[in-house]
Design a protein around this nucleic acid. Structure first.
Lengths: 360, 360
DNA sequence: AATTTAAATGTGTTCGCACACACTTTTTTT
DNA sequence: AAAAAAAGTGTGTGCGAACACATTTAAATT
């Protein structure tokens, strides 16, 4: 309400103490008598004092080091987007004294992960942002970091143990549920539908299971019992096997009308269908990777659900900054929207610039 | 690259002048010899100097007044969202010295608009943010503001005359095109489709025409010539007429399978269809208004295209701030994404909090 | 009661920049 | 050539907060 913002100085005046004392109260530095402390605190509350963040950042010349522990995108291009988001966030936040160090590991090598995680720990950062792809191996680090009181934020994969500061990502279950809706909307008449897990070990990937569950539940909750849903795991490392496996499914399922690809590899299915000249099967997949976009634009992939990996990187660093720099409370769970992408609205999601731009 | 950021002081040192001179160069305040000016400018470039925005905002105690000229949401609840976005932006940006004054007018009264626009002009703001709903009446103001060198940003309705600083909104044509896709995807077999303009004078609303065009072009560009597309204008001010008009259309079009509502009034159609127990007609509409959400959740409206009105308000103020405070170049056109909303992903678009939070 | 120690509080400098003002040099006017 | 005006340049203070350090006051020790 008050137009003029109240300063530390004003509080000091009202409390009849010096600004130094107010400062001590604000930062819980101790060395203040209880009586004065309460008096000051009351005034701070009454006056709705809000610290001037710019003055604060200016005054304390502190630099907060955040370590980002993410898969190297050279092994899987999916990880390029989070990296870009992280860098964008750093760009935006560096004026507030945030500095991000990137530690990239080979997502197919446990040793590489451990090595980089060790480096992270050794760098003694103020906060850690990571995608904990190796469940078992990351736990000891969680414990270590907790003991050292280093907050860590997770993205992409959710692990609730050792209470991370926050998790950034999507609601996998709901995204599967949404995929169900999209398939169903496009195929109003009962048919067969395939859930395809491509290129990932289900056992290791809880989120794939959740997607599958959500998808199936869409049909059961809506009493669409006549739809026949089957699932398969595919791996394109062996191309011949990949193809023949699909051939088998197609052959044995004449009424197959939709495929839900739970990973970012929808383009593999698209490529196959194109080669086989199959046009009546609709594909729903994930992520705006170039090969996916190619088939989206060709109309072979109907929809992609955007997991907004860049946004995950961006908001992760953001959350840590909120916590470290601005001492804000941060939500334990931050779900990014389930963007439905089709050929016709794709453009507006590629120019990510507009989706961030941040401030205080 | 350089870890240490270069300060005005460093530049002064290198150029062998005082910081005052550098300051003059940076702000084009004149009173600097051409020779020195160029020397300083070169160093600024070479060193990639970037002003510390916090120090800047702190140092110059200037307050930028932005006037927001928007329809009063009491007349049409659509306008509540932009208002909220504006206020959110003000909240985020006030620490940079931005203050927003709101001027609400009755969107059904030209006089009210002129009265408020006059007030805006009289308040002599540093920038103006408005939705120019009255084309003819706003032009003289544009001219006046241009002469006074007050930048103005438009939203919701685009008017290119008198070159506004920027336009924030959606690509109406493309949104119609997208709606075409959504209807078509849900109705793979040829049928009749209705375009309904509800509660707005088409003659005044260029964006409705564009939506219609985009919608039609989706079908023609994809050679879907067997689809029969008709259009109608409806007005619910006379409820009986509204109903009977729809009755007529339904009766004369037995194969009607989809309705595209170009305004935010899809719920009116939904209500009608529900009353008539018609379930096979799919509705696509705009905007996340409560009545629309009600029918979205009931499954009577299939999809809503989110025009992100809150985002429009937010980014509009943001753009003006970029221009005024940060002296950035701002895009003349800023299209917000065409978000496809369905019952299953709605939740993530309602919690708008996460879509902004801005920074520098 | 004098002295030491600890607790409580106050003061001054710094952060990077903006802006007002003072000062110096050059140019113009008379 | 002296005086006035204009152009060019430097200095100092303030913005709001952080933090180190100085100072005062109270409690503990002798």
């Amino acid at each position: 309400m008050d137009n003029k913002s109240v300063r530390i100085k004003d509080i000091a005046l009202k409390a009849k103490v010096s600004i130094g004392t107010v400062d001590r109260v604000i930062h819980n530095r101790g060395r203040v008598s209880e009586k004065v402390r309460e008096r000051v605190l009351k005034i701070i509350n009454d006056t709705n004092y809000e610290p001037n963040l710019m003055a604060r950042a200016l005054g304390s010349n502190k630099i907060y080091n955040i370590a980002a522990l993410i898969p190297d995108h050279h092994y899987d291009s999916y990880w390029l987007a989070p990296k870009l988001g992280i860098e964008k966030a750093e760009q935006d936040l560096k004026q507030f004294g945030v500095s991000v160090g990137e530690f990239a590991f080979n997502p197919f090598s446990v040793e590489s992960f451990i090595e980089q995680a060790d480096k992270v720990t050794a760098s003694n950062p103020d906060g850690i942002f990571l995608s904990p792809v190796f469940y078992r191996e990351v736990l000891p680090f969680f414990e270590k970091w907790r003991n050292q009181n280093i907050p860590f934020v997770l993205f992409n994969t959710q692990i609730a143990e050792f209470d991370p500061l926050s998790y950034i990502g999507q609601d996998s279950y709901q995204s599967g549920f949404l995929a169900g809706k999209l398939i169903h909307y496009g195929q109003p008449n009962p048919c067969s539908i395939l859930i395809a897990h491509i290129d990932e070990e289900i056992s290791n990937a809880a989120h794939l299971i959740k997607k599958e569950q959500g998808f199936k539940n869409y049909f059961s909750q809506n009493h669409l019992t006549q739809y026949h849903i089957q699932k398969t795991e595919l791996n394109r490392s062996n191309f011949a096997a990949f193809t023949s496996q699909l051939d088998g499914i197609i052959e044995s399922t004449p009424d197959l009308a939709g495929i839900f690809v739970t990973t970012s590899k929808a383009h593999e299915i698209a490529k196959y269908l194109e080669q086989r000249f199959i046009k009546h099967i609709k594909i729903i997949g994930y992520d705006l990777l170039p090969p996916n976009l190619y088939f989206l634009n060709k109309g072979i992939i109907s929809f992609l659900i955007n997991q907004n990996p860049k946004g995950q990187g961006y908001w992760g660093i953001h959350q840590l900054t909120d916590y470290l720099v601005f001492k804000k409370e941060v939500p334990i769970l931050k779900y990014l929207p389930l963007d439905i992408i089709t050929k016709e609205n794709l453009n507006y999601y590629l120019d990510e610039e507009s989706r961030f731009t941040d401030f205080r």
